[in-house]
Amino acid sequence: MGTSLPARRRLARRRLERTGDTLYRDALAAFGMSVAAALGIVAAESAKLAAPALRRFGIAFVGSTQWDPTADRFGALPFLAGTVLTSAEALALALPVGLGAAIFLSEMAPARLRAMVRFPIEMLAAIPSVIVGLWGLFVLAPIMRTRVEPLLARTGLPILSGTPVGVGLLAAGVVLAVMVLPTLTSLSLDVVGAVDRAQREGLYALGATRWEVIRRGVLPAAKSGLFGATVLALGRALGETMAVAMVVGNSPDMPHSLLATGGTLASVIANEFTEAVSDLHEAALAELGLVLLALTLLLSIGGRLLLRRSVR
């Protein structure tokens, strides 16, 4: 029972293609898995690098306020505080502006203006952070020194005391606000735009003004999505490195005022790592990286769960 030559050739080709299919599927799965593996490698390698510091200081590292590389004393608290202060300031500045802009573009502006303004706002998100840092250092910091900080220092509040030097935690927070603003505006615009029309029309039918519709109808419905957007923006602010490293002033002291110079977890790694004076110094910087990784993982998981619940 001999099959003809073309038929046999066809059969061989079919078999080859089946092998091709198996290969194709396996290759795609392997690429998928390597994404998962990449996350594992990042966590494991950072932990490996931090091992000497982890062994030496353990969890007390997070609570210690001393950072003195030449004396082998390392603690994360000044930078943890710097990170929290600058991020909180960034959100306090960016949240009202971003939300207001999103409301204006979604509820008040004509569709053409929305399209026109959305593009440049999203473009701001694409500008590399080192360029924002350059702008922060040479444009923003002098304005902070000569105009903003003397004014704030006059309030007499302890958190706003000190000599105006321009660079410092306050300037870092402003730069961070500029950097998270596009993310915040663009995500809020999506969330607010996704609110059901009926929610608005019901209130208009009751004779509400536009602002009352937004205040009582749109914002409550968008609440959890807006919260998620805020958490994502916070995650970006925490991990932002270069722009902060350029304007925060780099000092390892416990921050006592927003006008003082300081550092954040990310900025101190960028500024000190290549000039680490000892292996322990390097490991301590890596441990700061681990703390930062843990913080951002918590936030990005939390933020994503919230956004998913409200938008989808």
């Binding site: 690098l49 990310a266 910087l285």
Partner: peptide, 18 residues
């Protein structure tokens, strides 16, 4: 992959250094 997208780039640099 979504979590990896949120990892600060400076930490990715530390890992590759190690």
């Amino acid at each position: 992959a979504e979590i990896l997208a949120g990892v600060p780039s400076v930490v990715a640099g530390l890992a590759v250094y190690a």
